[in-house]
Amino acid sequence: MSILELDNVHAYYGKIHALKGVSLRVEQGEIVTLIGGNGAGKTTTLRTICALMRPTVGSVIFEGEDLSRYKPSALASRGIAMVPEGRGVFAKMTVLENLEMGAFHRKDKEIDADIERIYDLFPRLRERRTQLAGTMSGGEQQMLAMGRAMMSRPHLLLLDEPSMGLAPVLVEAIFSTIVDINKQGTTVLLVEQNALMSLEIANRGYVLQTGEIVLSDDARALKQNEMIQKVYLGIE
């Protein structure tokens, strides 16, 4: 059974028909990437999965359950976490408070232990735990947003353009962390404009163009695909 399945999802962004029948699957344990240019509907797809937007037609099935039954705020405890575009850290809260917010829905006693695990994953966050998140660099904020998402112990982690605005060396670090997180058992759906990097770490990929999936294949096969090479990898 797939962990996530979108079936013929249509969604509107205001009056714009942003998703025109998107169908995709993510299997347990995979890294799946969704690539596409500006305005292709990548962020809308993720927002629809998190129920921040509702599909007008079609369904989002997570672990066998239709998500339309859930309130948007119930999805964190259901096992979905997202690192939003532009990171979305709480700028006026400290690093520690941001991490605590990630565990907002949890009532267990292992929250402090999990914070330590996040600090081990991103030692920079430990150094800066009492600092306001808004005063940190873009890379540090990205680490914080990922750490915060992991605090909810997600089964499925959605990442919206984690490489945006970061220096190449930081992008490398962020992507290798994504691989680590995935190896520890979290399924990842990665939305990227940086197709080269994301196809490098993904098992499979989907290509989204103006609200429609135009191509889907193994990541390796996609890298060899002529259209992908031309449009997204810049190889002539």
Binding site: P72, L75, A76, M82, G88, M101, F104, S152
Partner: peptide, 24 residues
């Protein structure tokens, strides 16, 4: 308090607060 932090989170960003599991 937990509730106080939820209020601050909602004040900063309602969508992200929802993603954290906060009922806005």
């Amino acid at each position: 308090t937990r509730t106080g932090k939820a209020i601050r989170a909602v004040a900063e960003d309602k969508d992200v607060a929802t993603l954290m599991g906060i009922d806005v």
